[in-house]
């Protein structure tokens, strides 16, 4: 392991396959690879990264004399201060984040919001909207990484337990935003979801968020409705009416909401003119809600009813009365 003046780096080259959306196909110029952002202003890139605080560097290919494009950068919905500098034929955006911004399971989700879109001819094709040319995204830990985990077997067993005893799938997300006075509301429909062994062709989340916390309602046509919430200090406030196993399944599904939001971004933002503040607000809120659900799940698995009790093949049961 390198120490002292050495820093580990993860280089993500956009000439290769990427996890994200809002990018055109890869191209090469003067032996440098890149992808144009576009056709809309909003582009998403998800990358694996070590946990904790970090710093990043987005290398943008420029034409001679071209100014560095105005690009806003977000991490997991949180706006990052990006400092631009020019290095020869490249523009570089430097940014950093604290441990809280990177918190949560899964990859880091970067958003890039281009200030403007230009119509340029694609090689051999019609005109297309392009923003900026991203060559690489490089990630470094701001601190030395943690020592290798010694509980690998426990982690493997835990993941297997979750996959086999508490499987969930969020399905295909559809999202609409509303406001009601000061409150902001998000309607999230999930098509083809699954809670444990039970397919859920249509699930609907209604989430209201504000300074006082959040309220969630989850329901299915013909089924009941489950309500829950977050207190102002971010703690999970459970609803009632679910069996212990089914509460765990709902918590697992809530933990998937940031990733479902990301998938929705990939399909909905192509060519869109996004309200970055609104998207940022909800991405952060879903992160907070998912973390609270994860904490509640962890607490229940540790100290709640025996998670191995009962038959995992018993169908998920909605409460008969709204709670």
């Amino acid at each position: 392991m390198a120490t002292g003046p050495w820093r580990r780096r993860a280089v993500h080259d956009l000439v290769f396959a990427i996890d994200g959306s809002g990018w055109h196909e890869p191209a090469m110029r003067d032996a440098v690879g890149f992808r144009w952002s576009g056709p809309g202003r909003f582009s998403v890139l998800r990358v694996a990264a070590p946990p904790g605080a970090g710093r990043g560097e987005a290398q943008i290919v420029l034409d001679p004399g071209e100014a560095i494009p105005d690009v806003a950068v977000f991490l997991n919905g949180q706006r990052l201060a990006a400092a631009p500098r020019r290095l020869g034929a490249f523009g570089v955006l430097d940014f950093a984040w604290d441990a809280a911004a990177a918190e949560g399971a899964g990859p880091l989700e970067f958003w890039f919001l281009a200030d403007r879109i230009t119509q340029l001819p694609a090689p051999g094709e019609r005109m297309r909207g392009v923003g900026f040319r991203l060559s690489t995204l490089t990630i470094e830990s701001a601190e030395d990484g943690p020592a290798p985990a010694r509980e690998s077997a426990a982690l493997i067993a835990g993941r297997r337990f979750l996959a086999e005893r508490l499987p969930v799938a969020a399905g295909k997300p559809w999202i609409s935003f509303r406001s009601q006075g000061e409150a902001r509301l998000l309607d999230l429909r999930l098509d083809g979801a699954r809670l444990g062994p039970t397919p859920q062709p249509h699930l609907a989340f209604a989430i209201q968020a504000g300074a006082g916390g959040a309220e969630l309602a989850l329901g299915a046509p013909g089924g009941g409705t489950v309500t829950a919430g977050l207190t102002a200090d971010g703690a999970w406030r459970p609803g009632i009416g679910l069996s212990p196993r089914d509460e765990l399944l709902v918590l697992r599904l809530v933990g998937e909401l940031p990733r479902a939001f990301g998938r929705w971004l990939d399909q909905a933002m192509a060519g869109a003119a996004p309200d970055a503040e609104l998207l940022s607000f909800w991405r952060r809120q879903l992160g907070i809600i998912a973390r609270a659900a994860d904490l509640r799940l962890a607490a229940l698995l540790a100290d709640g009813p025996d998670p191995y009790a009962g038959d995992p093949d018993v169908p998920f049961a909605w409460p008969s009365v709204s709670t």
Binding site: W6, R9, A10, V11, D13, F16, G33
Partner: peptide
């Protein structure tokens, strides 16, 4: 490009 990607599996900055 693939060789570069291979080398950068272990990338360091000094």
């Amino acid at each position: 490009l693939e060789v570069v990607r291979l080398a950068e599996r272990e990338a360091l900055r000094l």
